[in-house]
Amino acid sequence: MSQDIQKIPADSFERVHIDSSQAERITKPSLSFWQDAWLRIRKNKAAIVSMFILLFIIIMSFVGPMISPHDAETQTLTHANLPPKVPGLEKLGIMDGYGTLAGKEVDLYELKKVDTYYWFGTDGLGRDMFSRVWKGTQVSLFIAFAAALIDMVIGVAYGGISGYYGGRVDDIMQRIVEILIGIPTLVIVILMILFMEPGVTAIIIAITITGWIGMSRVVRAQVLKYKNQEFVLASRTLGASNGRIISKHILPNILGIIIINTMFTIPGAIFFEAFLSFIGLGLQPPAASLGTLINDGNKVLQFQPHILLYPSLILSLLMIAFNLLGDGLRDALDPKMKD
C-alpha cells in the first residue's frame, strides 16, 4: 500500500474475468472419516506408544513361553524361590540372582547350585515365572477379549433393537434394563461364580452377564439420535429396507462409539478377572492368570517380592495402555471434539 498509487501502470486496471467456480474450490484434500481419525490418533503419542506396548505384550504372551528354556508347568522343587537372573544384566548388579536369605544378600543360584537362568525367577514350587507370567497374560487377555466381544454383540443387538423399533418393544426392553442396572455388578458376578464351576468360562459369563448393559444404553441412545435424522428419513422415503438403513446409514455412524466403548470394556474385564482371581473366585490351580499370579505373589510378598512384581507390572501396563489407547480413540473418533 505504501507504493505511490499514481505510479501504477495503466494496464493493471484491465478488467479480468475470474471463474467464480474457482473460489468454490475446496482447498483441503477430502478425507474419509477413518483417514481423518487415523491422522488424529497418529498425533497422539500416548496412544501410539500404548498401541506398541499392547502389541508387544500380546505377541509376548504367545512367544514368551516358547522362548523361555523352562516350561510353565514343570515343578523343580530344588529350584524353588529363585530371584530373577538374566544373562548380561547380571553384570550390572540388577537381576543377578541375588536375594535375601536370613537377612543377608546372597547369590541364591550359587547357593542352590543352579547353573541355569530364570529371567523372572521361580515360584515356591520351582516353576519358571517367565513362562508362567506370559501364559497368565495369554489367559487374561483371552478372557478380556472374549468378554468384550460378547458384551459388544449383546449390547449392540439389544440397544439396536430397542432403539430402532422403539415404542412398546423399547418400553419393555428398557424396563428390564432399568431393573438389571440396579443390581450391583459385583454381587451378580460373585453369585454367578459361586453357582458355576470356577474357570475361564465361568469368569467370562460372570463378566458379561451385566457387562453388556453399558454398551446397549450407548447404542440405543445413538440409534435413537440417528434414526430420526433427515438422511435416514430420506432413505426411508426412497424405499430403503430396514436392513439397508441399519447397515448403510446407522451402523457406520455409530461404529466409532461402539469401538470406543469396547476399548474401555477390555481393561474393565481384565480388572474383574484379576479381582475375582485375587479373592479366590477365579481360576483354580494349576491354571494361571495374571490375577492368580498376583494373588500367589501377595502371599509371599515379604520374602519373594519378585513373584508379585512381574505379573503386577504386566497387568498395570496392560490396563494403562488400554485406557490410553481408548482415550486416544475417543479423541480421534468423537466428532464432538473436532475443531
Binding site: I8, D11, S12, F13, E14, R15, V16, H17, I18, S20, Q22, A23
Partner: peptide
C-alpha cells in the same frame, strides 16, 4: 477479487 465480477488485474 476471486469472487468478484468486477476484478481488475491489480486486484
Amino acid at each position: 477479487a476471486l469472487r468478484s465480477d468486477y476484478a481488475l488485474k491489480i486486484d
